[in-house]
């Protein structure tokens, strides 16, 4: 009997410790999230809102602009994520293997420094570097005998240009996580491979990559989520243009809510975005469970 009262007292103390955080999330996140969900089933006309069932979803899912944004988002993700991962892997291996501490430290600082910059500032700088007329990149292209490129003002080049900003900002983050994984691989695996006569390239693909599996999955998912949520890069550089060729999903949501003030439709898009991110996260969960053992 005494033990139980002690436990409930202890339980109460524990609850009091988590209470501020729980309360905060209930009020500032859970409640608005439920409201968003509800908003997506209503429509507002002259200040009177009425229940319309799945009408908003129908409308959004048949809206060509929504699909355009979704495709642009997918395109951005498909370009930026693989390049970020490969570059990050390269940086991680270089950091791990570099025989010179000076090179190692410089590379580490250089790869992490972009993280200190806001996406807003980075986008502005890249827009300047990529300027069609006075940009230094075009100057270089001309020097090497190529033509000047429009980059952000071309419908076909705008997404790859946005991808470069994303890659630049993200490589350091992923490289650091991958490096932590690399350093946790016991060296005797490599020694054994060396004795068996395996080439460094072979041991990279047969030892390093499989043992890095969980970090690679983690980094992939973080990068996919980051790319799917892309907003700042596009909002700053093009605002979705030219001709909606860089309109991404979050930008579409932003404009629906805060430019056209259609809160119900914006909420519908938000819920769809949430579902998309949830599916991606479930993938992560499934893949992370596959542990590689030797």
């Amino acid at each position: 009997m005494r033990k139980r009262t002690y436990n409930s007292r202890k339980g109460l103390i524990g609850f009091l410790f988590v209470f501020p955080a729980v309360l905060y999330f209930l009020v500032v996140y859970t409640y608005p999230f439920i409201q968003t969900f509800l908003l997506s089933f209503f429509t507002e006309h002259r200040g009177v809102s009425s229940f319309v069932g799945l009408e908003n979803y129908k409308e959004v899912l048949t809206d060509s602009l929504f699909w355009k944004s979704l495709i642009n988002t997918a395109y951005l993700t498909l370009i930026s994520v693989p390049i970020t991962i490969v570059l990050a892997l390269l940086v991680a291996v270089l950091l791990d293997k570099s025989p010179s501490i000076l090179v190692r430290n410089t590379l580490q600082i250089a790869s992490l420094l972009p993280m200190m910059m806001s996406l807003v500032a980075a986008s502005l700088i890249f827009q300047w570097i990529f300027d069609p007329v006075y940009g230094i990149l075009n100057e270089l292209l001309v020097k090497f005998g190529m033509k000047k490129q429009p980059f952000f003002s071309s419908p076909t080049q705008v997404i790859p240009s946005v991808a470069i900003i994303t890659i630049w900002i993200r490589v350091g983050f992923s490289a650091t996580i991958l490096l932590a994984g690399l350093q946790s691989i016991p060296t005797h695996y490599y020694e054994a491979a060396l004795i068996d006569g395996a080439s460094p390239v072979k041991s990279f693909f047969k030892i390093t990559l499989p043992l890095l599996n969980s970090q690679i999955v983690l980094v992939c998912i973080s990068e996919i989520i980051f790319a799917v949520k892309a907003f700042d890069q596009v909002f700053i550089t093009t605002g979705g243009g030219p001709a909606n060729s860089s309109r991404v999903i979050v930008l579409h949501l932003y404009e629906t809510a805060f430019k056209w003030f259609d809160y119900n439709e914006a909420s519908t898009i938000a819920i769809l975005l949430f579902v998309l991110l949830m599916i991606i996260s479930i993938f992560q969960w499934v893949f992370m469970r596959k542990k590689v053992e030797y």
């Binding site: 999230f33 908003l39 949520k229 949501l253 809510a257 809160y263 938000a270 975005l273 991110l277």
Partner: peptide, 14 residues
Amino acid sequence: FLIVPFQAVVVPLF
């Protein structure tokens, strides 16, 4: 809320 994007709460918050 690691998964729920901020955009999914922004309208009511606003």
